[in-house]
Amino acid sequence: MLSVQDLNITFTLYGRGLAQKQLTVITQLDLDVKAGEVVAVVGASGSGKSLLAHAILGILPDNAQVSGKMLFKGEPLTLNRCQDLRGKAIALIPQSIGYLDPLMHVGQQVQRTAQLSGLSRPAAKAAVDRTFARYRLAAIVQRLYPFQLSGGMARRVLVSTAVVSQAELVIADEPTPGLHPDVVTETLNHLRELASEGKGVILITHDIEAALQIADRVAVFYAGTTVEIAHAQDFSNNKIRHPYTQALWRSLPQNEFIPISGSQPTPDALPDGCLFSDRCPWVTQECRLDRPPFLQVRGAPVRCIHADR
């Protein structure tokens, strides 16, 4: 359904006077999502997860240049096509209630979303009623303001926005931050349900555990690139390939709980060659020469020249 290949995003920053700075925040990013599938995008903050979402929706700021290939249903996703598709075929589930208008009733906002997706006013109204009922949101919730919602209600309202739009591809950007575990599970189940209905779901999160609960595949982002796209079961089967993925996995409390030393490089100080080379335990001279290409190792793509060892 969606395929992103070799995506690069560069920001032009204006300093003093006429000085300009080019800042490449996403390099060689790859991702693909099929209908009926949940693909988790996992990475630390600053790894380019949200930017990917904004690029797919065509809502990057004006000073961003995008290169690389993005295909939606086989057709290139140009800026014009993004504009036509967003809110209709592609929907975003935002992080928090801060993404709702603070002065508008939530029912009205979800209805607006439905109308933007192409429904008539009565049809949109009906879609909101139906969706709120589906997520056990009482009718009076429609007449509440965002600040009046509890954490759980807020989540369900945000998921509703994607459901009323009938979108085929749903991008959930960090949908479970600081939530009660029950609410996390509930939210994740809602996303899984959407996939079962045939939608493609991208789950953007920094929480590997949450991702593994529902994802079919997990794309691991590091410093603006995709280092590996693993199958979900690879993690427990000890088949994950990239040293960064392995380190992430080991850092979980139920595993060895060893934090990764060092920190992700900032976009203005990327290392030569492999982006992970300054922290990698397996690093060799060769790693520093070129950005590693995607290699198929044990049935999945990985950006590491020593992954098959």
Binding site: L57, R86, G87, L100, D101
Partner: peptide, 11 residues
């Protein structure tokens, strides 16, 4: 953020 979200919905 809420205007960003509105734009993402095609507003």
């Amino acid at each position: 953020d809420y205007v960003l979200f509105a734009r993402a919905q095609g507003e």
